[in-house]
Every structure is written in C-alpha cells, then in structure tokens.
Amino acid sequence: MRKTLRVAAYAVVVRDGQLLLARSPVPGGPSEWVMPGGGMEHGEDPYDTVRREVEEETGYLIEVTGLLGVNSFRRTLPARRLGRPADHHGVQLVYEGRIAGGELRNEVGGSTELAAWHPLDAVPGLVHVPMVDIALDLWRERPAAGRVTPAPD
C-alpha cells in the first residue's frame, strides 16, 4: 500500500463570540463548514501557510497569536482512478489568530465556497468536519502538551 503524508495549518479566529469558518462543497452531499486553513506547500513554513490559507479562503489578513496544538490522524484512503489505496497520515497544526486587516469575502476558484462568522454556541448545530471540534477544544483547553486527548473508543 502506498503511503501519503499531508501537513496542514489552520486558524481559530474568534471575535465578539463568533468563530470564523469557511464552507467546503462536498460532491453528492451537503457542504461542510471547515476551519480556515489548508495544506502546506513544499518548502513553506506552517506559520506562512496558515496566514496564506486564511487570506485565500476568507479575505482576512491575520496575525498569528499562538500555536494551540497539533492533531495527527491516520486512515486508509480508497483507491483513486487506476491507483491503489493509500495509508494516509495527516498532521494538522492549529494556530490562534486575530484579524489584522482585509475584508470578509468568499474564495473564488478554490476549495471553499463561502466564508462566514458563526456564534460559538451555534457551531455544534452546523454540518462541519471533525477538525472544527478539535480546533475549538484546543482553543478552549489550551493543553500544555499541545494536543487534545482523544475520547476512548
């Protein structure tokens, strides 16, 4: 089985009790809310990744105010066109940020379709990816070890 690795950086941006999220379309399903952020390019520093991705997806320039932690996961990805399955390892760095400039706008021609602020207490009711919960747990708990202890199976 082939092995893949993806390193990504995300930002938790909270202002006036609201969380900044981006919405990602899902083929054949409902769109999902995601943390602004994304994959690191070869040779790019994760700090620069999170700033670039937030601007691309939301229009905002952010000041990174801290590293909240790291999430790591592993799963088998199905085979794609003429390929074979992959043992995928994802490493997600979660930063805290604050708005330093720019204006809210939607991404054009990218991986997201909408950017919006949501009240923190409304987030559990949104259709969203698990990374949103992980990032918020890191933001709320600020664990010394930089990771949220996964719930037992």
Rank of each mutant, 00 (worst) to 15 (best):
T49H: 07
R51T: 12
R51M: 10
R51N: 04
R52N: 10
R52K: 11
E53C: 05
V54T: 13
V54H: 05
E55N: 12
E56H: 06
E57D: 04
G59D: 03
Y60E: 05
L61R: 15
I62P: 02
V64T: 14
V64M: 08
V64H: 11
V64F: 08
V64D: 12
G66P: 09
G66E: 04
L67N: 01
L67I: 02
V70Q: 10
N71Q: 13
S72G: 09
S72V: 15
R74I: 02
R75T: 11
T76Y: 04
L77Q: 10
L77I: 03
P78A: 09
P78C: 09
A79H: 03
A79S: 08
R80K: 14
R80Y: 11
R80N: 10
L82D: 14
G83Q: 08
G83A: 06
G83N: 09
G83P: 08
G83S: 10
R84I: 11
R84W: 01
A86T: 15
A86S: 14
A86H: 07
D87R: 09
D87S: 10
D87E: 12
H88Y: 12
H89Q: 13
G90L: 10
G90S: 11
V91G: 02
V91P: 03
L93W: 06
L93V: 11
V94N: 10
Y95G: 01
E96L: 04
E96F: 01
E96N: 00
G97P: 02
R98A: 07
R98M: 03
R98F: 01
G101M: 01
G102P: 00
G102A: 06
E103C: 00
L104I: 03
R105N: 01
R105K: 14
E107P: 04
E107T: 05
V108T: 12
V108Y: 01
V108N: 01
G109L: 02
G109C: 07
G110Q: 02
G110R: 06
T112D: 00
T112F: 03
T112R: 07
E113T: 11
E113V: 12
A115H: 02
A116E: 10
A116C: 05
W117L: 10
P119W: 08
L120W: 14
L120M: 05
D121H: 15
A122I: 00
P124R: 03
L126M: 09
V127R: 14
V129L: 15
V129Q: 15
P130I: 05
M131P: 00
V132G: 09
D133Y: 06
D133Q: 12
I134V: 15
D137Q: 13
D137H: 08
L138E: 10
W139D: 08
R140S: 12
R140M: 13
R140P: 00
R142Q: 15
P143A: 14
A144K: 14
A144N: 02
A145E: 15
G146A: 14
R147Q: 12
R147T: 13
V148Y: 03
